[in-house]
Amino acid sequence: MRILSITTSSEICGVCILEDEKIIIEKNLNNGLTHSETLMPLIKQTLNDANLTLSNIDLIAIDIGPGSFTGIRIGIATVKAFADSLNIPCVGINSLEGLSLNETNNGIICSLIDARRENVYCEIFENINGNYIVRRKPAFENINELLKEIKQINPEYNITFVGDGAIKNKEIILKILPNSSFACNNELFAHNFGILGYKNHNNEDYKNIEPLYLRKSEAEQKMEEKLNANK
């Protein structure tokens, strides 16, 4: 199966073509330009370099976030246009899962994507021989509260943190969870989404692919505050 995978939820605009789980070609661009300028030419160039066209693609795997709101929309809108016009099956993969594949050792992996103001998008996995099992669902959290929660469960946890949220909060992570370690690669690479797409696709309708923003809207937050106050 030939897969085109795309990530646009971080600073990197990444495009990869894979044969099943094997990378044929990959281009990850981080040149400061917006993804709306970069993505289309990058897809074209990647296909050209591999001597392929979109009609040779059997599946598109797309990073649905969380991350940059505008970036996510650019990626998803592009992929939906391809899927709609060329009838290519698609699969949406969340960015935290894509990130977790950067760490290949067995054990607990915590994906952290920076969401500013001491907030992160996070998801926790356990890697058992290449099977990444979700141990804590994707969520938008304050980093201090998240770390406190993990510490309460087990302060001796040996967790590997990965992502720009891990780099940014390294000091506080080590302060609260001193047994923690950190992944070498902390960026979102297109090939991870291709690999996960290959494993997870199941003929879903592209129309069902939606951005995963995770951040609660102001209205939702106010509603929650109100409900909490009434308790």
């Binding site: 400061g32 940059s68 709101f69 505008t70 970036g71 500013r116 951040r215 809207s217 102001e218 209205a219």
Partner: peptide, 17 residues
């Protein structure tokens, strides 16, 4: 209109750029 609109236009992404 509100905070959500600021996030929707990618407002907070300007801060590091």
């Amino acid at each position: 209109a509100d905070l959500d609109e600021f996030y929707a236009i990618g407002g907070d992404e300007y801060f590091d750029k």
